[in-house]
């Protein structure tokens, strides 16, 4: 507990140091305030955008997109990896798909996605699913294959059928790999989402955080660009540090199953 507090203290300390350096540079007058806005103007822009609801609305849009993408990926990944471990034919198919699709950055698919889906929500979700799905499948497959045979034997011994073995044994046993996959997937999806939103912009006047930053950019509002970046960092930290670490703490870390 003490160590954790220490960590937060350290974080805070370094953030203050960075803010101090930032302030010093902006005071030094080396750069035009247009390039290097002072921390106060950034905070002010952040505060104003929070106040008028713009930032919150766009953050919610981004998060809902990513959530939808994650859920779709999760379902497809489960189906693909379960198929792959239950049949050699499907394993070949899934592995081929993985080999083709996994190395492809989502952004590289943009031109095609535009033709297939147009520049709307569907396109962004497609990019997110592409970014999340393959690392997730890869991790799930590795996870399922890494389950010691003995767990399955114990399950069979108590008369469990394959479905129950999947539910009671394979699922918790592969959780460390699943979590690792989700973590990679989240990081990739978050990046893909922001880039996609900056490229596709918004359909029907509604856009997410990437769109927010893009809009601030075209209106030459550099403090606003920084404000958008701050939100991205905050969400990244919250999800990584709080959500994922918490989930790991109460599951795989407690179980001694960390990979």
């Amino acid at each position: 507990m003490l160590k954790m507090k220490n960590n937060y203290f350290q974080r805070l300390f370094w953030i203050l140091v960075i803010a101090g350096i930032w302030k010093a540079i902006s005071l030094s007058g080396l750069f035009s305030p247009l390039i290097f806005p002072s921390p106060e103007t950034v905070l002010k822009s952040f505060y104003l955008s929070l106040l008028n609801g713009e930032l919150i609305r766009q953050t919610i849009i981004s998060l809902s997109l990513i959530l939808r993408g994650l859920i779709i990926s999760l379902i497809i990944a489960l189906i693909l990896s379960l198929l792959a471990i239950s049949s050699k034919t499907f394993a070949g198919m899934v592995e081929t798909l993985l080999a083709i699709a996994h190395p492809l950055p989502g952004i590289a698919l943009m031109p095609l996605v535009l033709i297939w889906f147009g520049a709307g929500t569907k396109a962004i979700i497609f990019i997110i699913v592409h970014s999340v799905l393959w690392p997730l499948v890869l991790n799930l497959l590795t996870g399922f294959r890494a389950i010691p045979e003995i767990y399955r034997l114990v399950g069979e011994n108590y008369g469990l059928n394959s479905l129950k073995i999947m539910w009671y044994i394979m699922t918790p046993a592969s959780l460390p790999y699943f979590l690792a996959g989700i973590k990679i997937g989240w990081a990739r999806a978050w990046r893909a989402l922001i880039s996609a939103e900056m490229l596709f912009g918004a359909a029907g006047g509604i856009g997410g955080l990437g769109w927010y930053i893009f809009k601030k950019r075209v209106f030459f509002d550099i403090p606003g660009v920084f404000a958008g970046l701050i939100v991205i960092v905050i969400i990244g930290v919250l999800v990584e540090d709080l959500l994922f670490n918490k989930v790991e703490d109460i599951t795989v870390k407690r179980w001694g199953m960390q990979i």
Binding site: I150, Y151, L153, G159, P172
Partner: peptide
């Protein structure tokens, strides 16, 4: 087939579910 009327105790320490 396997059933709970014959229960195995293995040599492997991993036979307990870690979760």
């Amino acid at each position: 087939g396997p059933d709970a009327d014959r229960i195995m105790v293995f040599q492997d320490f991993n036979q307990l579910f870690p979760w």
